[in-house]
Design a protein around this nucleic acid. Structure first.
Length: 261
DNA sequence: ATGGCAAACCTAGTTTGA
């Protein structure tokens, strides 16, 4: 039963031991990483090669950066929008997207969607612009194949996906403009894998380092796996693993795992 | 309204995160 996971590690070099321990204990087949914060030349490949994973990364110094670890070698690996959408190549200066084929008719897309900064700031509008680019990109892909779209979306899709939805009109990650663009992407034919199995509120994938947010479970569910119908039909389970968030010096995000039969 | 924490960067204070 293949397992596919997504995890914003907030620096792969700082979190190397956590990720290795987690791979050893869960044995996931594919792990999509975000915020690796390292160039491809500096990416710590060897510990993953030693564990039998192939490493595909697209990173930059200090900020952003995505990677896919896979037990099998992957075909069709492409970084950024440009290979599918040359018109949007300016979005590729920030390393936030990598994709690969899992099968001839299944494409895995790993994204690190911009944070958005303050409401109505330049960063907020960049986030909205980036989401429109992602929509155009996925429109092409969903016409060709089944797609597993995962990563750090920096968006809580519903009010039950954050601990306090008050004032959300200006709360970046929960505004209507962001949710509407995410809904437009979802309407290309995606289903929220986590919500296929769990309806209750109070399940989060990110907690602020400050103010005891994790201890008080004051978090947001912003890390997602979106799957097209044929994948959904094979999905057995999708859960957030909060165990790594309890460790000393954790990432502020927890991994999310999808199991497929 | 602010701070609280963590990481990276030409090491000290700035930028980013959501």
């Amino acid at each position: 039963m293949p397992k596919i996971a997504t995890w914003n590690v907030n620096s792969i070099r700082t979190r190397l031991d956590h990720v290795c321990q987690w791979l050893d204990s869960t044995g996931v087949d594919y792990l999509c990483l975000q915020e690796t914060k390292v160039t491809d030349a500096e990416f710590p490949r060897q510990p993953f090669l030693d564990r039998g994973y192939h490493v595909y990364c697209s990173g930059q110094k200090a900020y952003n950066g995505v990677a896919i670890l896979s037990r099998q070698p992957l075909a069709g690996v492409e970084a950024g929008f440009a290979p599918q959408l040359p018109s949007h190549s300016e979005l590729d200066t920030q390393k936030r997207l990598i994709r690969a084929q899992l099968a001839p008719d299944v494409i895995l897309v790993n994204v690190y969607i911009p944070n958005g900064g303050e409401y109505d700031s330049e960063k907020y509008h960049y986030k909205l612009h980036w989401l429109k680019g992602l929509h155009a990109y996925l429109q092409k892909l969903t016409a060709q194949a089944e797609v597993i779209l995962c990563g750090d979306f920096n968006i809580a899709p519903e009010d039950k996906d954050l601990f306090d939805a008050r004032d959300r009109a200006t709360k970046v990650g929960a505004t209507d403009a962001e949710r509407n663009l995410l809904a437009a992407i979802r309407d290309l034919g995606f289903h929220d894998a986590f919500r296929h199995f769990t309806n209750e509120p109070g399940h989060y994938s990110w907690w602020d380092y400050r103010a005891g947010a994790f201890r008080r479970n004051q978090g947001w569910r912003i890390d997602h796996l979106y799957i097209t119908p044929a994948v959904k039909a094979r999905a057995c389970n999708c859960r957030i693993d909060i165990a790594p968030r309890r460790l000393p010096k954790p990432s502020d995000h927890a991994p999310v795992i999808l199991e497929i039969e």
